[in-house]
């Protein structure tokens, strides 16, 4: 195991986030605060409680997931796309380093950044609504697993993309709609029956549901199923990354 390589990639990526601290940490936090102000206070004050929870508190897990998913994808995709774009990827490809070590370095750093953002948003939410975390260990587990799985997805996008436009394409056209339609701001039983069935094909539903359960013990699907889906998603993403490195897809000519 080339631990030195993992260490330097991780450190380098974290340093990049630190150098762009406003963009990396402040920006997602400000966006989330705006969501709290608009949905939690302005609109939320006119909405009755959901499942016995005030609307402001109800959307906290969904908002954290929204930030986590978009940040994980964006951090990881940019992290690996940038060396490809500048041509410095030659160094990683010519180094004695396996795909899993590259993943550990890049995805580990992207997931760490998202995790920090998630925690900051959680603390910030505490200033707006009364928070209750029924299962802290489950909450942390979902937080970490989500950061890892969606950082893996971002890593795939970063390896696949051949332009900055393509880099933005999947997050804009796929991730954001999935998150908004994944029960971040509602429970899926509020939807018409047909749309409830459609929602079950949205992996974000399982993430938000499991994560919300860890806070308020209310969920759209069972927590075991949520966990299983997150793990399955991670395994699928990891397999795709493995295939990309094995074949050199868009990495080696």
């Amino acid at each position: 195991m080339n631990t030195q390589a993992v260490k330097v990639i991780y450190k380098y990526e974290m340093l990049r986030a630190w150098n762009t601290i406003l963009q990396s940490f402040a920006s997602p936090v400000i966006s989330t605060i705006l969501y709290f102000v608009v949905f939690g206070s302005a609109i939320g004050s006119r909405i009755e409680s959901v499942e016995g929870i005030s609307y402001g508190a109800f959307i906290v897990p969904g908002l954290i997931m929204l930030a986590l998913l978009t940040q994980s994808v964006s951090n990881a995709s940019f992290g690996i796309y940038f060396p490809r774009f500048t041509g410095t990827m030659y160094e990683t490809l010519s180094a004695p380093i396996s795909f899993i070590e590259i993943v550990l370095g890049y995805v580990g750093a992207a997931a760490t950044k998202s995790f920090i953002i998630g925690l900051i948003i959680l603390v910030t939410a505490g200033f707006f609504v009364e928070l209750k975390i029924a299962h802290p260990i489950w909450m942390l587990s979902f937080l970490i697993l989500t950061c890892i799985s969606f950082s893996l997805l971002g890593f795939i996008i970063g390896l696949w993309a051949e332009s900055f436009e393509q880099l933005q394409l999947i997050p804009l056209l796929v991730i954001t709609p999935l998150v908004f339609l994944g029960g971040s701001f509602y429970t899926i039983d509020m939807l018409p029956p047909a749309w409830q069935t459609v929602s079950l094909f949205n992996p974000v539903v399982y993430l938000v549901s499991g994560f919300r359960w860890s806070f308020y013990e209310v969920s759209d699907v069972s927590v075991e199923l949520s966990l299983l889906m997150v793990l399955l998603f991670s395994v699928i993403c990891l397999s795709i990354v493995w295939w990309m490195f094995k074949t050199g897809y868009r990495l080696k000519r």
């Binding site: 080339n2 030195q4 390589a5 260490k7 330097v8 990639i9 380098y12 340093l15 150098n19 060396p83 500048t86 410095t88 160094e91 990683t92 180094a95 004695p96 380093i97």
Partner: peptide, 18 residues
């Protein structure tokens, strides 16, 4: 990588090679 120092970039390269 244009936005890192000479020292940081050579330390990175050394680490990358284990």
């Amino acid at each position: 990588s244009m936005f890192v120092s000479v020292w940081d970039t050579i330390c990175f390269s050394r680490g990358l090679f284990g």
